[in-house]
Design a protein around this nucleic acid. Structure first.
Length: 472
RNA sequence: GGCGCCGUACCCAAGCGGCUAAGGGAGUGGAUUGCAAAUCCAUCAUUCAGCGGUUCGAGUCCGCUCGGCGCCUCCA
C-alpha cells in the first residue's frame, strides 16, 4: 500500500517513503492550554488521527508525538507580548499550573469524544526546559545566536535557507504591520530563543539558565521535544496552515541549525474551519467548543463526520445546516450498520469476494491519495448500495473502512433506544396505554400519548420488533 | 504592497486532461405504515462564476474579468 501526501515543503504530491523501513515518526503541534479548544482547533487533531490510522493500516509502526504548550507561548512574538498562560491565570484567578492542568484535561476529553487516539507521547513544554536550554546552548556554540536587551535571539541571517518552505524569500513582508517592531532584533525575522528581560509582572513560570532566570521562546519546545522523542531527523510534521510562515519556519531554522541535518521529510498542514462571517479565532471572540455542540443536542461524532466530509487541505465552512446534514448522514450510517449486524456476521477481509476486494482497494487508494476522506465517505455509502455484495461482506467492508474513518461502527448497537432510565416505569406504562389504544384503533388517544411524550423529549418509534423509544 | 487559496445542483462536497460530472443532506414521486419514524425503489447539474486560448478532447492546463477567503510575527 503506497501512500501519497501533499508536502508543504516543495508544495507537491509525493509518495511517502519512511526514513526507517516499516517505521514512521509523526510530530504534531498540540494545544496551548490556556483556554478551551474551539471546534476549529479540533480539525488538525482529527486529520492527524486519520493520518495515523492510515499509516498504521498500511502496516507502519507509528510513533505519534504531540506537545502540550503550557508555557512560553506569547500573545505576540515581540518583547511586548504577554504569556497566554499568565494572562489566563490572571483572568481566571487560578495558578498557571492549575490552568494548564484544567485545560489539558478539557482538551483530552474533547479528543476522546471525537474518537481521536491519544498520541503515544504527549509531552509538556514545562517538563522539557532542560532540553530547550541545551538546544539554545548548541545554537549559541554554533554561532546562531546573539543577545540583546537581555534576550537571546536566533540570528536568521546566519541560516541562508530561512523561510524556504514558506516561500518567505519571495514575499515582500510588511513588518510591524500588526505588531510593534522589536528594536533589539538585528533582522526583522529573528526570534527569541530565551527571555530574561521580562517586563511581565508576577511571571510565575521561570527557570534558571546560562543566560539568567527566564523562560523559553515558544518555537523552542517543538524542536527540542521532537528531537528527543523522534531523533534529529524524522518523517512527518503536522499542524495548522497558519504555522507555516512563522512557527514552523522558525522550528526548521533552529532545528536544522542545531542538528546540522535535514529535520523533517514531510510537512502536512490543514486548512481552517471558517465561520460564515470569516475565520474562527479566539481573539475575535464568539468561538464554539465541542461542548457547545453537545449542549445543542449533537453527538461529538457528528462533528467528526462533518470534518471528514471535507478535505483537510480545503477550507471548510461551518454552519448549523452543514452539521445537521452530517448528523443525519452519520445516524443513518450507524442505523444501517446495526441492521447489517442483525442480518449477518461480518466477512473477514481474507475471505472477501473479488467485488468486495475491489471496493476495499478503491477505498484504500482514496485514503492513500492525501487522505481523501470525502471520497472515502462516498465509498462507505457505495458499499451499502452495492447490490453485488452480500450483507456480511458489506458489514465486513464497513468495519474495515472504519478502522481508518473512526466512526465507532464496531461498537454500534441499539443502545440509543435502551429503556434503562429512571423514568422507565412511567414511560413503559404510557407506552402500554398507547399500545392498548392502538389495538382498539383509538388512534386519537394513541397519538395524544405519543405527542405528550414527544413534548417531554421522548420519541416513540414503532417497528416490526415492537415499540421503542429514545430521548431526543 | 507582497504571498497563496477558492468559486461544481437548493445546501455541503469529491473530481487535478478522456467512460453517461462521486457521495451526503434537503426536496419530489411511489411502496410499506392506522398515522408518523425508520426502511426500500425512483427522481434530482447536457453542466462545472464569466470571457478568451492551448488540445483530437478541459470543471480539470494558460490568460483576463467578476466574486469570496486566508496569510505577511496571537492563531489550528
Amino acid at each position: 500500500m503506497k501512500v501519497h501526501f501533499f508536502n508543504s515543503d516543495g508544495r507537491e504530491m509525493q509518495e511517502f517513503k519512511p526514513i526507517t523501513e516499516g517505521k514512521v515518526g509523526i510530530y504534531c503541534c498540540g494545544p496551548t492550554v490556556y483556554n478551551y479548544a474551539h471546534i476549529g482547533n479540533m480539525r488538525p487533531y482529527t486529520f492527524e488521527d486519520v493520518l495515523r490510522r492510515t499509516l498504521e493500516y498500511a502496516g507502519y509502526d507509528v510513533t505519534h508525538v504531540m506537545n502540550v504548550t503550557d508555557v512560553g507561548h506569547l500573545t505576540d512574538d515581540g518583547d511586548e507580548g504577554e504569556d497566554k498562560m499568565i494572562k489566563a491565570s490572571r483572568e481566571k484567578g487560578m495558578s498557571v499550573w492549575d490552568i494548564a492542568e484544567f485545560f489539558t484535561e478539557a482538551f483530552f476529553r474533547d479528543t476522546d469524544r471525537l474518537n481521536i487516539r491519544i498520541p503515544h507521547q504527549v509531552c509538556k513544554a514545562t517538563e522539557h526546559i532542560q532540553e530547550m536550554i541545551d538546544l539554545v546552548r548548541t545554537l549559541e556554540e554554533k554561532g546562531y545566536t546573539y543577545t540583546a536587551g537581555g534576550n537571546v535571539y536566533f540570528d536568521t541571517s546566519r541560516f541562508p535557507s530561512y523561510g524556504k518552505m514558506a516561500g518567505l524569500d519571495k514575499q515582500d513582508l510588511q513588518h510591524g504591520a500588526r505588531t510593534a517592531v522589536d528594536e533589539n532584533k538585528k533582522n526583522a525575522q529573528d526570534f527569541v530563543l530565551w527571555f530574561t528581560n521580562s517586563k511581565f509582572e508576577k511571571q510565575a513560570m521561570t527557570w534558571d539558565s546560562p543566560w539568567g532566570v527566564g523562560y523559553p521562546g515558544w518555537h523552542l519546545e517543538c524542536s527540542a521535544m521532537s528531537s528527543k522523542y523522534l531523533g534529529p531527523h524524522f518523517d512527518i510534521h503536522c499542524g495548522g496552515i497558519d504555522h507555516v510562515p512563522v512557527h514552523h519556519t522558525n522550528e526548521i531554522a533552529q532545528s536544522e541549525a542545531a542538528n546540522g541535518c535535514k529535520w523533517v521529510n514531510y510537512w502536512l498542514h490543514n486548512e481552517f474551519i471558517i465561520m460564515k462571517n470569516g475565520k474562527m479565532s479566539k481573539s475575535k471572540g464568539g468561538f464554539l467548543t465541542l461542548q457547545d455542540l453537545v449542549d445543542k443536542g449533537y453527538d461529538a461524532m457528528d462533528y467528526r463526520y462533518f470534518l471528514l466530509g471535507g478535505h483537510y487541505r480545503s477550507q471548510l465552512v461551518f454552519s448549523w445546516e452543514s452539521l445537521d446534514a452530517a448528523r443525519s448522514a452519520r445516524e443513518s450510517l450507524i442505523r444501517k450498520t446495526i441492521q447489517l449486524k442483525k442480518s449477518s456476521t461480518p466477512a473477514a477481509v481474507e475471505s472477501f469476494s473479488p467485488e468486495a476486494r475491489k471496493v476495499m482497494d478503491d477505498f484504500i487508494s482514496h485514503i492513500s491519495q492525501d487522505l481523501n476522506t470525502p471520497r472515502c465517505l462516498a465509498d462507505m455509502w457505495s458499499t451499502l448500495k452495492n447490490s453485488e455484495l452480500q450483507d456480511g461482506e458489506k458489514l465486513g467492508l464497513l468495519l474495515e473502512m472504519d478502522k481508518i474513518m473512526g466512526f465507532r461502527l464496531a461498537e454500534a448497537e441499539e443502545t440509543e433506544e435502551s429503556p434503562e432510565e429512571p423514568l422507565d416505569k412511567e414511560i413503559e406504562d404510557l407506552i402500554g396505554q398507547r399500545q392498548e389504544a392502538r389495538k382498539n384503533r383509538d388512534f386519537a388517544a394513541a397519538d395524544k400519548i405519543r405527542d405528550d411524550l414527544l413534548a417531554r423529549g421522548i420519541q416513540i418509534i414503532d417497528s416490526p420488533d415492537g415499540v421503542q423509544w429514545k430521548k431526543i
